[in-house]
Every structure is written in C-alpha cells, then in structure tokens.
Design a binder for these strands. Structure first.
Lengths: 258, 258
DNA sequence: CAGTGGTCTAGACCACGCG
DNA sequence: GCGTGGTCTAGACCACTGG
C-alpha cells in the first residue's frame, strides 16, 4: 500500500497525489471506487468472464484500503455484476445458460420444472422504427431498428409468440448477415459486447389474435400472458424491447420476494 | 466490550465465557449474530417499529466486535427486515402503507400511478380446509382455516376479485368477531403479531367466469391476470394463500430486476 | 506452497438527529 | 454535546484453490 502509518485520517494523505478524491463534501470513497470499476465494465476494460485484479492490487492502484475496495466489490456482487470465488478471485458476470434461466427467464412449468424453450424465427429485418420504438429505445432521429419475431416451444409444443426490437446502432449487420440464435443475451454480449444488466417487465392478460391462435394451436380469444420487457445496460441505455405473449395453460410466470 | 487487547484471535477468548461459539468448524460469527437477532424478531422480543440496541450495546452483549454486529445488521437491512437511520438507530421494519405498496403490491396504473385499491368484503368464514389449503398452508389434521373473498376497486372501478385463506391457528377470532380491513398485512402484524416477510407468486392468464364478469363489469371469458401468492413469515411458515384475478385493461403487474 | 477472498477485530473520524 | 449509524483504515488469522 506504500502508505505511512497514520493516526489521523485528515492528515494522512496530505502529501500524496490523490488517485481518488479525499472526499470533502464528495461521494464516499467506496462509491468512487464502485464508479471507477463500473466505468471499466462499461468500457469493456474487463470483459465478462475476466478476473479482476486482486483486492490488494486494486487498493494499491486506487490508493485506498483493501476494506474500501472490498465494500465496493461486495456491492457490485449484490447487483449481480460480479461474482467471487474464494481462493480464485473476483470475476465479471456472464450471461450463461444458468444465469439466463434464473435471472431473466421467469417462466416455469406448472410442475416446477425450468428450462429454456427452443425458438423458431418467423421474420427478421432492419427497418425504420415506429413511434413507440423511438420512445422505448430512446432513438435519435434517423436511427434504425432491428426487428424480429419468433415462436418459442417447450418440448415441441408452441407456447410463446414474441416480437423483439433493438437499436440498430448497437447491433450492426444484425438482421442482414447475422440471424438471432436461441440465447439472445449471450449473443448480444459475445458478438456485440453489449451486456444486459437490468430489466423492467409490465405484465397483463390479453386475448390471442387469430394469427397468434394459429401459431400456438389455441382458439382465437384465448387468454395469453403478455410480458412487455425493457432491457438495459449497466448504465441504463435501452438494449432491447421485447413483447412476449404466452399460453399459460401449462406454464406460469414466477416472482419471489424476501 | 471489556476485552483485553489481543494480538492473536486464536487465544483472545480463551478466558471468557462464550456468549457466542468461537467457531471451530461452526458458522461464522456474524451469521450466529444474525441468527440470534432473527430469533428475537420471530419471538417478538423486538416488535415492528422498535429500535434495536445500538451496535456497541449488541456487540458488548454478544461479546463480538462492533464490525461483526454491523455486518449481521446490514445483511438483515438488505433483506428488508430492519432499516437504519443515521443518528437515530436501527429499527424493525413495519408493514406501512408505503412498504405494502412498493414491496408486496405490484399492480400499477398504465400511466405509472401506484395506489392501494379499496376493498369490499363479499364473505368471510371459519371452516374446514380443502385439500389444496391443507397442502399450501401446511395444516395439521383437524386444523381449520379462515377464508374470505373480496372485490378491490381503483377509484370506484372494480378491478380485482380475490380469495384468501389463512391458517385459523394463527388468527383466533378472525372471521367471527373481527372483519378484515383493507391493509391486511398491517392487520396481521398489529393484531396478531404475525409479520409477512417473504412471498412467492405464480402468475398466469385465465378467462373470467360468469360470476367474476358480473363483479368486474366485463364480459364472461375476458382475459384476467391471475396472481397465486403464498406469503410466509421470516422463518418460512405459511401465513396466507391468496388468489387474485385482475382485469388488466387499465393496470398491469410490474417486475423489476437488476 | 503462495495467493486469493472471507472473517474478525480495534480504533479513528465523519455526518446526522436531538436535546 | 452526545450518541447514533456511516466511512475508512490497518492488520490478524481462516479457508479455499491452484500449481
């Protein structure tokens, strides 16, 4: 740490160049550390799966104590941005199958079973956005969207119809040279370096249109669960707008608190 | 704290009576502290709204350092069991209107507005449980339930029909001498000392029965959002089984992550 | 074995709320 | 002014992982 023993914090740093501001009416140190690390995640200095430097190294670099770094890291672990493994290090979270399943995909079989459904692409294009898409994805004038729809099935039983819109700016070539795979979030991350960190879902009950009824093998007008989801990056930029309409005869949406 | 300065932890406590086990292949100290405090919450030693002793007092009583108490308390604050106010103290969480609104009641107007709906009781009785109720509420043979149904309205527009079942054991006289008020969780807490700390919801889309359609002023067969919720105490005992069926023409269920 | 994160302590000063 | 929780440091030992 290369710092002299100090009895009083107020004088301890007076002779050092401040890598981190010494907090006169400013943010707490651990939040400044948090912000610095968060910035590096946004900038892909450390990519998903990478190990961060050890707490001691970070503390030395940022000229704070190990405990302060630890508090910042623990906060980010609680947010699911990082994870730690004793004896190994601290790592940047990835969109693994497991994570997708437990963090973002909340549909389960009525027997409690949980698995990612298969997807069948219906159509996919780059095009001009609708007014809603401009609002939701916070698009600049002239910006385009990638828009596609698909049907998702559990054990070959069609169950979900969903429409997805992405800001084309973040996903060049998508929809022209590249087709979307089943696990979208991992695709966004590994191909485009865009990591989804937050999501907000608005859920309601609707009636199946004739077209949806045909795709799902149900009657027109049957009740469907509509999940309208906005996904955002760590710094709050919109990444994806998805509207899923689900036949809940054999599945339901699960929400736990506490 | 009344403890001699100690250079080595392994010998520091050898001459003291252990209020807390000194962790030989046992739980970490802060988890033992957590469990002790949790126990006192379950036993209503400290009731909702009460201030806990200060960190220093707890540390002295339990013969650990203030930092260890702090970690235990912070974990429980993260779980919403406690809250802290700088300069004042640490307090046991209550089921205030605000908390009910933001933690357990996730229905919002489509304009983003959020308020608790009014309730109209339809019927209320103490009776023998159905088989499902025995399962869900983990009832002993011979145990009874309190069961009631109500219609909830936003600005006098009926919107939700819900059926609720409680283990009668936890709520004596309820349904006979006492009628349920609008804010149930606060009622459970203030009258019966039962605090809901956890909930799990299963959500699906269903069709309105003729009876529901009449109550909500919609057509039979219209889509409703069904929320099937189990509520539990801090130590996992079932408190309430509630099935709400909501007209989502003007409202939706909100779920946020990250 | 060395290096990592995990637990625990002790003690400093800061910021807030109240009398 | 005093007591509360909030921040920050320094340093000890524990437990796990890998070579």
């Amino acid at each position: 740490m290369a710092r002299p023993a100090a009895k009083k914090r107020s004088t301890a740093k007076s002779a050092k160049r401040p890598a981190v501001k010494k907090r006169r009416r400013s943010l707490p140190l651990y939040q400044q550390v948090d912000n610095i690390i968060r910035r590096r995640l946004v900038d892909n200095v450390w990519k998903p799966g990478d190990a961060l430097p050890s707490e001691m190294q970070l503390a030395a670099e940022l000229d704070v104590s190990q405990g302060t770094v630890r508090k910042a890291l623990n906060d980010m672990v609680a947010e699911n941005l990082l994870y730690r493994r004793q004896g190994l290090g601290t790592f940047v979270s990835e969109h693994t199958e497991r994570r997708a399943l437990f963090f973002f995909f909340k549909i389960q079989g009525k027997d409690g079973s949980s698995s990612l459904p298969e997807s069948e692409l219906l159509d996919c294009e780059q095009t001009d956005p609708t007014k809603d898409e401009v609002d939701r994805l916070e698009l600049e004038p002239g910006a385009k969207v990638v828009r596609f729809t698909r049907v998702r099935s559990f054990q070959n039983v069609p169950c979900i119809v969903e429409g997805i819109a992405l800001p084309q700016e973040l996903f060049p070539d998508f929809g022209i040279e590249l087709q979307p795979p089943n696990n979208l979030f991992r695709f966004y991350q590994s191909i485009y370096g865009v990591t989804v960190a937050k999501a907000r879902e608005l859920i309601s009950a609707v009636s199946a249109t004739r077209k949806e009824a045909g795709l799902l093998g149900i009657k027109a007008g049957a009740p469907l669960l509509q999940i309208d989801r906005m996904s955002m990056t760590i710094d709050g930029r919109p990444v994806e707008w998805r509207v899923s309409r689900c036949n809940t005869s054999n599945h339901h949406y699960v929400s736990e608190r506490g």
